[in-house]
Amino acid sequence: MKNHKSTAQHTWKGRPSETIQYWHQKVRCIENLSLHVITPGRKLGILGYAIDEGVRRNHGRVGAEDAPDAIRKSMGSMAYHLPENLEILDYGDITATESSLEELQTLTQQTISDILNSNHFPILLGGGHDLAFPHGMAALSYTASKNETLGIINLDAHFDLREPNNGQGHSGSPFLQILESAKTKNLHCKYFCLGIQRAANPSSLFETAKNTGSWWMESEDCTVENWETVKNNLDAFLSKVNRIYLSIDLDGFSSAYAPGVSAPSPMGFNPDFALKVLEYLAKSKKLLTMDVVELNPAYDIDHSTAKLAARCIEFTLRKLWD
């Protein structure tokens, strides 16, 4: 299929074992996007977004298109602690060829919708944060079909509420695009960003956040020591929504933990805080779908950022099935 590349099974590798002990033994790579032929039952559906045109449009440093396979390679060697009967299916990557970003996002949205509607829990591997626009719209369409309200929780240093450039979306605009689309279509959607850094967001974006009814917490308040306040805010937000789309932008972490991102900063939150949030959301029973974005392998150090992405995914899923 144009703009789709299947994952080679050997991408998933790790320590050999006669019984299933590691992720690489559980993942099955699917050659196409014909999700309707897959057997029934609860499944994990992995899809890569090997695109960084949105980062380029947002004047970031490119390289995120190589992220999905870097995350897969880090995930493959992880110990497996999910149910034995759970199918884990890797549907490959949406890739950039001669198509426009808008065409690629249309394909991505349709594919995520198919994944949701065929009883998968989707795991999206980015790629630029422009992935959030098709991902969020697919989640919004799914919840709207069930008369539910979608909540978007974004762990990020940036609001990503910027206006499109000359009508073109980018990695800094996805949540504004979602909120405006929801308003136009009279659909119910709320947005909460944790990890906002004032040095990375001009006052105009704080005004946009206020005008769109967005929720946020600043980076210095996103600590384990301040967990009760964070928990109270999460409780208040969760009480207003039925389902959660979780987006983890790796540049929300301090560059001490995540050097390989499109926009690194030494001032972000640490993994202990992020894991508290991930566990809380997983145990809320409202988590519908998730993505991890903005890994840039070209700038990673000893694969530490790719491993962080993999661990965030594994931890969330383990708590989801606890």
Score class of each variant (00 low, 15 high):
Gly128Lys: 09
Lys286Thr: 00
Glu84Lys: 13
His10Pro: 02
Gly252Asp: 12
His10Trp: 11
Leu317Gln: 12
Gly195Ile: 12
Val55Thr: 04
Asp249His: 09
Pro174Gly: 05
Lys283Gln: 14
His188Cys: 13
Glu31Phe: 06
Gln109Met: 14
Ser255Val: 04
Ser171His: 10
Pro83Lys: 07
Ala274Arg: 06
Leu179Arg: 01
Asn85Cys: 07
Ser214Gly: 09
Ile153Arg: 04
Gln168Ile: 15
Asn270Gly: 09
Trp23Ala: 03
Leu205Val: 06
Cys222Met: 08
Leu89Gln: 03
Ile38His: 03
Gly60Met: 10
Ile178Phe: 10
Asp251Tyr: 04
Thr108Tyr: 08
Gln168Gly: 09
Ile152Asn: 02
Ala309Asp: 03
Leu295Lys: 05
Asp322Gln: 14
Phe273Asn: 08
Lys231Ser: 00
Gly169Thr: 13
Met75Trp: 08
Glu180Cys: 06
Asp130Leu: 06
Glu18Cys: 03
His81Val: 01
Gly54Ile: 07
Glu218Thr: 14
Trp227Gln: 00
Ser6Met: 12
Met75Ile: 03
Cys29Val: 00
Phe315Gln: 09
Ser265Pro: 08
Asn119Asp: 15
Ala139Cys: 15
Ser247Gly: 08
Val292Ile: 15
Phe253Ala: 06
Asp69Lys: 02
Asn117Thr: 05
Thr143Gln: 12
Leu250His: 10
Ile112Pro: 02
Ala79Glu: 15
Gly126Tyr: 09
Ser181Val: 05
Ser262Asp: 08
Phe192Arg: 01
Thr316Pro: 07
Leu288Asp: 08
Ser100Cys: 11
Thr108His: 07
Val55Lys: 03
Lys26Cys: 14
Asn165Pro: 00
Val241Arg: 10
